[in-house]
Amino acid sequence: MPSKDQLFGKEGESLAVLYLKKHGYKIIEQNYRTKLGEIDIIAKEKNTLVFVEVKSRNTGHFGSPKYAITPKKMRKISMVALYFLKETKQSGVKARFDVVSISPGEKEPEIEIIKNAFDLAYG
């Protein structure tokens, strides 16, 4: 049985997918998992492959969720993205890393897409 945090995370990812679609992204894959780690959403926006990390918080006590991505997490996402590109033979494709930040709002959650949130991170 999923934990409360896992259910909250899944809900955040569902909101992110709807929001990305509304903003012209085509969803290719969700929860892409490898032995190296996971990418929440892989999408395409125009001619760019986009690796999306979803960060959501149900309280504002710890600041915006967009600031919760550590250098370690960036490296892990980068490794998984490179693995995906190699496995799907798309090494030459234009790609970037976006973050979808979901925070509590007055009536509705506040959702923000941060394009090019970080660069490919090594080592």
Rank of each mutant, 00 (worst) to 15 (best):
M1C: 07
S3N: 07
S3T: 15
K4M: 09
D5S: 10
L7D: 07
F8E: 14
F8C: 03
G9Y: 02
G9E: 12
E11A: 09
E13W: 01
S14D: 14
S14Q: 09
A16R: 07
V17P: 05
L18Y: 00
L18Q: 11
L18E: 13
Y19L: 09
Y19E: 11
Y19F: 15
L20N: 08
L20F: 00
K21G: 03
K21H: 01
K22N: 13
K22D: 14
K22H: 13
H23W: 02
Y25C: 06
I27S: 08
E29T: 15
Q30I: 13
N31A: 05
N31V: 05
N31K: 08
Y32E: 09
T34H: 10
T34W: 03
T34Q: 10
K35W: 10
G37K: 05
G37M: 07
G37H: 08
I39L: 03
I39N: 06
I39S: 06
I41H: 04
I42K: 06
A43T: 07
K44M: 10
K44C: 08
K44H: 02
E45P: 00
E45I: 11
E45A: 03
N47E: 14
T48L: 01
T48W: 01
L49A: 10
L49T: 15
L49R: 14
F51Y: 04
V52P: 03
E53N: 10
V54W: 01
V54D: 12
K55N: 09
K55M: 07
S56A: 12
R57C: 01
R57D: 04
N58Q: 11
N58C: 02
T59R: 11
T59F: 00
G60Q: 08
G60A: 03
H61A: 11
F62V: 08
G63M: 02
S64C: 03
P65Y: 04
K66N: 12
K66D: 15
Y67R: 13
I69F: 00
I69T: 15
T70Y: 00
P71M: 04
K72M: 02
K73M: 03
K73W: 01
R75Q: 09
K76E: 15
K76R: 13
K76G: 06
K76V: 12
K76T: 15
I77G: 07
I77R: 01
S78W: 05
S78Y: 05
S78C: 03
V80A: 09
A81G: 10
A81W: 00
L82F: 00
Y83I: 10
F84R: 06
F84V: 12
F84C: 06
K86T: 13
K86W: 04
T88Q: 14
K89R: 12
K89Y: 09
Q90M: 11
V93H: 08
V93L: 11
A95G: 04
A95P: 02
A95K: 12
R96G: 01
V100Y: 05
S101H: 04
S101N: 11
S101K: 06
I102M: 09
I102P: 04
S103F: 02
S103W: 01
P104S: 06
P104M: 04
P104A: 07
P104V: 12
E106Y: 02
E106D: 15
E106C: 03
P109E: 13
P109T: 12
E110Q: 12
E110P: 00
E112A: 09
E112S: 09
E112Y: 06
I113R: 04
I113N: 12
N116A: 02
D119S: 08
D119K: 10
D119Q: 11
D119L: 05
G123M: 07
